[in-house]
Design a binder for these strands. Sequence first.
DNA 1: GCCGTTTTCGGCCCGACTGTTTTCAGTCG
Length: 577
Amino acid sequence: MPIHNREIADVFNRVADLLDIEGENQFRIRAYRKAARIVVDLPRNVGDMVREGEDLTRFSGIGKDLAGKIKEIVETGVLGQLKELEKKTPPDLSRLMKMEGLGPKRVQTLHKELGINDLDGLKKAAEENRIRKLEGFGEKTEKLILEALERMKDEGEKERIKLFAAEQIANDYVDYLKKGRGIKDIAVAGSYRRRMETVGDLDILVTCKKGSQVMERFVEYEDVAKVLSKGTTRSSVVLRTGLHVDLRLVPQVSYGAALHYFTGSRDHNIAVRGLGVKLGLKINEYGVFRGKDEERVAGRTEEEVYRQVGLPYIEPELRENRGEIEAARNNKVPILIRRDDIRGDLHVHTNETDGRQTLEEMVQAAREQGYEYLAITDHSKRVTMAKGLDARRLAKQIDAIDTLNGKVRGIRILKGIELDILEDGSLDLPDDILKELDLTVCSIHYNQNLSRKRMTERVIRAMDNPFFTIFAHPTGRLIGGRKGYEIDLEAIMKAAGERGCVLELNAHPDRLDLDDHNCRMAKEMGLRVVISTDSHSSSDLDFMRFGVYQARRGWLEKDDVLNTRSFSEIEGLLKRK
DNA sequence: GCCGTTTTCGGCCCGACTGTTTTCAGTCG
């Protein structure tokens, strides 16, 4: 059973939590948390890397000790150090730390003074009013804990929401704030601006004229369920949906520094500040300052901030401290793909199967997107739920597309199909109909719980078929839903490269599959990807932007993405030798 | 625990808000 990177990261995070509660050195704790993030961010499976004898200390932040611990987890499935820690400190205390208002110090006090070991113990102590008597605690804190426990029961753990949902909430809030008086600049920063597939909270940054009532207006918004804090430069609220929103107010000379600061990521900021420290600069959300008298040298724009530490501008999607700073230093920051670069969509459905619009309507919608081409890829027969096409109905659709191509101007309609990859790796329509098509989009719908080995063989076998063009939504994951099947993507990408097949980045906001790490792995392996919407209605064509965001997070440039090419180029590229 | 064009030891990002406090610790981002 292979160990996932996420599991190794979980072990490190648990170690960090317990060390934190024990009052260990903060920097040692930070090292564990940093290592956890590095492991999660690696495009490859760490277990495979360990088995191949790769030196993990080449990643900055992983030293000899942590590399050894990773090896131990990979080889034994556990970490002895964590077992030891759990003997001294009840492991459930780390759950207490996740609660609002409780950090390591308070959890330690609750444990030492009141013998609290878990959430039940905490609840009991709070209800019996024993917590308010502790030094550093009070009535309000006790009440806060009970409220937090109550919320936990209702909602479970705080969930991140999909970018698509966050976008709507953010747009409405920003529009509302803009209608207030005196706002100059306004931007939503944080993971939202870095276009992460999910967003934990919203950070809104504003500059405004004197006497603006922006803070009042912010907390008076109709969707606010609770005001967590309200100050002159910062306020926090919880919306009725449970989403946290922060508003920060900074002077205009600080706008760029603040935007940089609040966009993060935290690791990226720490790295940039580290560069600043070496140059004798102090960087905070108000600007960049030099020397003892703290002379302001930058702050109005993000470009200024980067320039002060000797770097070119770095796009928000890259700011994860995954090598972008080193790349920037060497003038090798990728020129990221943009939405305008996309010239066609290669995966859409019509009402012949489970789409909502007709062929003609989808073509018209694609023209309105400004596309040069559109591939119609309805489901194949195995997907009975979607009224999948058999050879006869597909032949009819091919004729319809040929006819339509003769009539419409300014766009080429490609003939395709979304083929089901059967459990034995065969495709569910015969070659003599597939040869009539411009491309096939192949994907897995059934038997998703095969072993990693069998699933990988299934797909590679399917790719052996010369009519296999694109492997769609390659992991099958649904964000916030299904985890995705077990599959060795590295082997799949290698096989795809050898056979001239392409992988899809599915732009649907529930999928975004390939994810950012996968995209980067594809790029490093020299494999091109297509970004497609898998549209089931004409309005879904707008999902393309989410695919582009994810591609940008995966460092993809225009040339890495096939459907940035013109129709004549793509025609040749799709055909396998 | 990690790291090194000042360094193999001594640093490691920085500020706002709250609650419990008479000057600050803890938490958060």
